[in-house]
């Protein structure tokens, strides 16, 4: 479980996160939704320490993170898997080497075990016959999937995904959603997903946080989201005609 308490984050005079609190549960798909520019990526990066909030506390299973020593932060980070918005694959390494990288760094598996693990992870994200290719030779969606494979290679306790299925076709997007859902419940991972894709919210969202201009103004599950009376949330969710119709039919 990850708890975020009253964090504030500024970039110069730009107050991006405003006294934001949230809690994210284990074995559940925790979602952060909100408009583009509302601060989702900044929140995610603040939780893992790539941005340092000016104020507030973050607990990873009751271990305080922001004020922790760098070595302790590194220990916690070894339990984290992260899928960046742009993939962030190592461009000088092949697909296989990318997934192998965390294993080489932090596991004491034998060569054969590592290879097995890599094949297993790549199979789970439906990457076939691309082991020897380099990231520049992959499509955007394939890069995303390889990034997910790399993030789950070490069986993380915490999984962060920044828009894991943006740029994917609906079929693959659902596949990725299902995959994340499966591994989350299977291994009891605390998963946090940033998204503005309402389909995946409806598909897998267990605990949804709606961020509006840097504030967490609504929290609930995918059933409650249809019946909320929060105006900003309704504007966001029912932006499309399709969801307006769905609401009327419920």
């Amino acid at each position: 479980m990850i708890e975020v308490k009253n964090i504030d984050k500024y970039f110069g005079t730009n107050h991006v996160l405003k006294n934001l609190s949230a809690s994210f549960q284990a074995s559940k798909i925790n979602m952060i939704i909100g408009k583009s520019g509302s601060g989702k990526t900044v929140l995610l990066k603040s939780i893992i320490g790539l941005h340092i909030p000016e104020k507030g506390e973050i607990f990873f299973d009751n271990r305080e993170f922001i004020s922790a020593k760098l070595n302790f932060k590194r220990e916690i980070r070894k339990e984290i898997g992260m899928v960046f918005q742009g993939g962030a694959l190592f461009t000088s390494l092949s697909v296989e080497e990318n997934v192998m990288f965390p294993l080489n760094m932090f596991s004491n598996m034998s060569k054969a075990e590592k290879q097995n693990r890599v094949d297993f992870c790549l199979e789970r994200v439906n990457i076939k016959d691309a082991n020897k290719l380099f990231p520049s030779e992959l499509s955007g969606g394939m890069q995303k999937r390889v990034a997910i494979a790399r993030a789950i290679a070490l069986n993380p306790k915490y999984l962060f995904c920044d828009e894991p299925n943006s740029g994917l076709d609906p079929q693959t997007a659902i596949l990725i959603d299902q995959l994340i859902k499966e591994i989350t419940t299977e291994y009891g991972i605390t998963t946090i997903i940033n998204t503005h894709d309402m389909n995946s919210v409806m598909e897998i969202g267990d605990n949804i946080n709606f961020i509006f201009e840097g504030e967490n103004i609504w929290q609930g599950n995918r059933v409650e989201i249809f019946n909320s009376d929060c105006k900003e949330l309704n504007d966001f969710v029912f932006a499309s005609e399709l969801y307006k119709k769905i609401k009327h039919n419920i």
């Binding site: 990066k45 790539l50 980070r77 070894k78 962030a88 694959l89 190592f90 990288f101 760094m105």
Partner: peptide, 18 residues
């Protein structure tokens, strides 16, 4: 620099590497 702007350095940091 390219590794920095494409978040590859962040990815290394997140894995707990220096």
């Amino acid at each position: 620099g390219t590794m920095r702007i494409t978040e590859q350095i962040d990815a290394l940091e997140i894995m707990g590497l220096n």
